[in-house]
Structures are given as C-alpha cells and as structure tokens.
Computed example of a mutant assay.
Amino acid sequence: MVKIGNIELPDFPLLLAPMEDVSDPPFRRLCKMHGADLMYSEFISSEGLIRDAIKSRKKLDIFDYERPVGIQIFGGDEEAMAMSARIVETVNPDIVDINFGCPVKKVVCKGAGAGVLKDIDLMVRLTKAVVDSTHLPVTVKTRLGWDTDSINIDEVAERLQATGIKALTIHARTRAQMYKGEADWNHISRIKNNPNIEIPIFGNGDIDSPQKALEYKNKFDCDGIMIGRGAIGYPWIFNEIKHYFETGEILPEPTIADRLEAVKNHAESSVEWKGERPGLMEMRQHYSNYFRGIPHFKEFKTKFLQAVTLEEVENLIEETKVFYSEKSFS
C-alpha cells in the first residue's frame, strides 16, 4: 500500500496526470472506469481563483465517483498560492497538488510552473505557503530542472519534503526539453534510493504501453507511475497495465465498439457537465484521439466535428458502428 497523508492507494498505483484542456471531469470519469487509482484536475491559476475567474472556478468541480482526486494549482506568488489553497479546500478534494512542471511559455513567463525551477528558494517558499494554509495533504509535480546544465531535482526533492509535502511526482525531462527527447528516469531512481527521502516518488514521462510500464517499474524502483499523453484517447491503458502486471498477458486492443462506447460516455458526461453546445465543442479535440490508427475514420471525423447536438453524436456513433461492422473491422 502507498500512502499520501491519510489517502491509501494500492501497491504501485497508476495516476492520471493533470493536463490542461484534457483532465476535466468527463475525461477523469472514463479513466477512473478503466483503472486509474488517483487523478488530478487540470491545473488552475491561483490568480484566476482569487479573481473568481469563471473558467478557473469551473475547474474546481469534482465528483465523489472519482475519488481520490487532487486539484492542482500553479502560481508564483506566496500569498496568492496560500489563498488559492484555502479556496480549493472548500470543495473538499483529497489532495492539493502544486504544478512546478508546466513548460509552456505563457505560464513560465509569469514565474510559475517550470519557471520556478530557476529559483529553488522561491519553490520552497511557495510550497510551504500552501502546506501551511491547508489541512489537506499537499503533493508536487515538477521536472528535473530548467535544462541539462541545471538539473537540481536532488536538492528540490529533499527541500520540498522538508516543507511537509506528502508525495512528489517527477516528469523526467527538463523544461528545455518540453515533451521532446527521451525522459531520463535514472534521476527518479536516484531520488527514490536517497535514504533521506521518505515520501512516495512517482515517475512520469513516456509510459505508453504495459510493457514499458513494467520495465520502468522494475528498473527505476519508483512508488507508482503517472500517465499523461498515453491516456489521451486511450483510457484503457490503466487496466491494460494492471492486467499485464498481474498476468504477463497483453489484453486485446479495444474494439471499434469499445471506442464508440467511450466516445458516447465521454460526450454524454461532457454535455451533462458543461451543457450541450460547450460540451460538444469540448469533445471536438477528442474524436480523432479515440480512433487514432483506425482506417477510414477520416470519413466520419468531419461529421463528428460538425455535430452540435448530443442526438447527432449518438446517431453518428450508430452509423459508424454499422459501417465498421459491415467492413468487418475489429
């Protein structure tokens, strides 16, 4: 068993990464259905929460069926981070997570996300401000450092643990790498085997198959794996990994019917959460992901993108199902 504060997780849990415009409640619901053990919200601006920005507040929505669930915040100001943690606490998540890893320019330029990697003292102050302002367990997600010449994750791990965080997730790339190149999990292994580190250490980066998950589990000795891009359009990855861990067998890939059922569930949840038009607008980025690599889907993609009612989407799902069954595709 792995513990984050008083939150109990299975041995070697699988976590869903916080991903902007992806990890919303409808997507989290699907990942939970397919085996995710702990999930995080999209990242939320501390400044946005304090300004009462509607988009930021909407990201605070959590539901009992997805527990345990954490809400992730980011920012570069101690007072704002403390205040936003108190706001987060009012919706009663299981965990508050701090984002020190987002590499995108608009976040970094504000001295937040991976921008904080340049100033460990600030990172420590921001973390302590959050830890001191909430009774919830606080976790952190970060990267190895700003670039290959300034990898500082060893110092970061020890100093953040000293502030009172209950777990650390390490994306095994630098900010300069963004999402390119290979993630170097040797740093994660070194942190995990540091005798001064007592909190759970989760690894993140490049996990896109059960085989790789088992290889990295055995090779790098972390306490669990966080999966981000590998779950986009493929929530089945969590159960596939668990099944492979237990049996050594690869589950069959989801069928066309499985994929269409996932689209249906996702669309219905999105409409229920956001309303019909905005919910279906949100879905447009997901259709291609669910059918990546499936022949002839291009014929249906345009129709899905043009659908503006849930009824249209559901009719399209049936039409697509008939097409693939007649063509004898799996």
Score class of each variant (00 low, 15 high):
N218C: 10
G228A: 15
R229K: 12
I225P: 00
L280Q: 08
D258C: 02
A257E: 13
V271T: 03
I225S: 08
I232N: 06
F220N: 11
V263D: 01
I227V: 15
F245V: 05
A231P: 09
P254G: 06
L214K: 15
D223G: 02
P235Y: 12
I241M: 11
G233V: 08
I232V: 15
L214P: 07
L214Q: 12
P252R: 01
G275C: 04
D221W: 04
E246D: 14
K242H: 05
E215M: 15
I237K: 12
A267R: 00
I250A: 11
E249M: 10
K274M: 15
F245S: 02
K264L: 05
G279W: 01
Y216I: 14
H243R: 08
A267Q: 00
I256Y: 05
E268C: 13
P254A: 06
K217E: 02
L214I: 13
E261A: 11
R277L: 07
E268R: 14
P278E: 02
N239T: 13
E215A: 14
C222P: 02
I250T: 13
Y216K: 15
G248H: 05
V271Q: 04
N265Q: 12
P278G: 01
G248W: 06
P235T: 12
I241A: 10
I241H: 09
G233W: 09
T255V: 00
L280H: 08
W273C: 09
L260D: 00
M281Y: 07
E240S: 09
L280R: 10
N265E: 14
M226H: 02
N239S: 15
F245M: 10
E261L: 13
I256H: 02
T247Y: 11
A257T: 09
F238I: 11
L280T: 04
A257D: 13
F220V: 14
N239M: 12
I250G: 02
Y244A: 04
W273T: 10
H243P: 04
R277H: 00
L260G: 03
R259Y: 03
Y244C: 07
F238V: 10
A262Q: 13
G230A: 04
Y244G: 02
T255C: 01
L280Y: 07
Y244H: 08
P254D: 04
S270L: 12
I250Q: 10
I227R: 05
F238P: 08
Y216H: 12
Y234F: 14
P252Y: 00
E272T: 09
K264Q: 13
F220D: 10
H266N: 09
E249P: 02
G275N: 03
H266K: 04
P278V: 00
E240W: 03
L260C: 03
I232C: 07
G248P: 08
L214E: 15
E253I: 01
G233A: 10
G230K: 08
I237Q: 07
E246G: 04
G228L: 09
I241G: 08
L251R: 08
C222H: 08
G230C: 06
D223L: 03
N265G: 02
I237G: 11
G224W: 04
Y244P: 02
E215F: 15
L214Y: 11
G230V: 08
F220I: 13
S269A: 15
N265C: 12
H266Y: 14
E272I: 03
M281R: 14
G279D: 04
R259V: 04
K217W: 07
S270I: 06
N239L: 11
G224S: 05
E249F: 08
V263W: 01
S269M: 06
H266G: 10
A262M: 15
W236M: 10
K217L: 12
R229C: 05
I241Q: 11
Y244I: 02
